[in-house]
Design a protein around this nucleic acid. Structure first.
Lengths: 185, 185
DNA sequence: GTCTATAATTTGATAGAC
DNA sequence: GTCTATCAAATTATAGAC
């Protein structure tokens, strides 16, 4: 049975995500992705005409998968504290299990040099992340002022992204673990 | 009077820093730097034989300048709180006045795809930053356990780096200001 | 110290056969 | 949908004249 178009498209996206999480938008090439998947670069262009197309698709798929793993912030069967724990756990898996940065963190750091749709996709990741954490924290502190909830959500996201950055630079997974744990107090 | 070697070297470093803070190591080229400085790329190679040489020199100069601006964490004429304020202020200037990311934050995000000496330079930035903040916090809470001081220093650095990342992605300087202010409470 | 010229490779992207 | 072949441009880097 021949591989369907969709499967190849997904394999391309998976390979590009891996490369981008290491080197960012400017750190990968169509030829590398083609070699990873086992096809030629012209075939990659058939699925994604330009690098902007592919990179934006990767960032959107990454975001969708991330948000799907988070689930509904209003889910009554889970406490706010458990949901924040889950949120930190997703970042932990990315850096500890995959040994890679958050894709959209990498893209955010080079946002000034990105094609418009790739920058917009990275922006979307953070907007959706912040909105999700806000919804969780609103449940936890129903009476807090909206600006305070918003700030607490920003802090949560910023601390985890910063934790990935610092622990990556120091090559210390323990640094990430300690920072992530400090979030749950 | 002809331009001395040193001046050209510094102009190259300054131009490379600007480019790298936008696009990272893989986001700039010798020809762009040459054009910025007003010379040819072969002349850039005369000052810095390889891209790894130039990029590592940029990261080291950036770190030295940053640490010099921080000054002595044991300076008795400044309170710990003022010093933390100064620390946050340096990041604020980078993103608000320069409109750019922290160079070593950008490099940290692509550390898996960097030449060894560039990755080591980025690592050095964070080691020196953390040690400086630790020294300040030790003064502030002389009786706290060393591990707690260390964790608080890590949080300070990670939050500011993360704040730059998130505010860059969202294209909102206000997001950075709010996160930086929250550090001073 | 800067230049011209160029090597050797890689890049994003396209045309057209199968 | 994948391939071969190719283009035009860009890349890092070097040799050698001035």
């Amino acid at each position: 049975m021949a591989r369907t178009e969709t499967q190849t498209t997904e394999r391309i996206i998976a390979a590009a995500e891996r490369r981008m999480r290491d080197g960012g938008f400017h750190g990968y090439s169509f030829r590398e992705i083609a070699a990873d998947v086992g096809i030629k670069s012209a075939s990659v262009h058939h699925h994604f005409p330009t690098k902007e197309d592919l990179s934006a698709a990767v960032a959107e798929a990454y975001t969708d998968r991330f948000m799907e793993a988070l689930g509904d912030p209003e889910d009554r069967s889970r406490s706010p504290k458990d949901l924040i724990r889950l949120y930190a756990e997703l970042f932990r898996r990315a850096i500890i299990e995959d040994g890679q940065m958050c894709l959209c963190g990498v893209l955010a750091s080079e946002v000034a040099a990105l094609p418009p749709r790739v920058g917009a996709a990275a922006k979307g990741f953070f907007e959706r992340n912040i909105a999700w954490v806000e919804a969780v924290l609103r449940r936890k502190s129903a009476r807090a002022r909206p600006e305070q909830i918003k700030l607490a959500a920003l802090k949560t996201v910023a601390l985890l992204e910063g934790a990935m950055l610092v622990s990556g630079a120091l090559q210390s997974q323990e640094v990430f673990e300690q920072l992530a744990d400090s979030l749950l107090d």
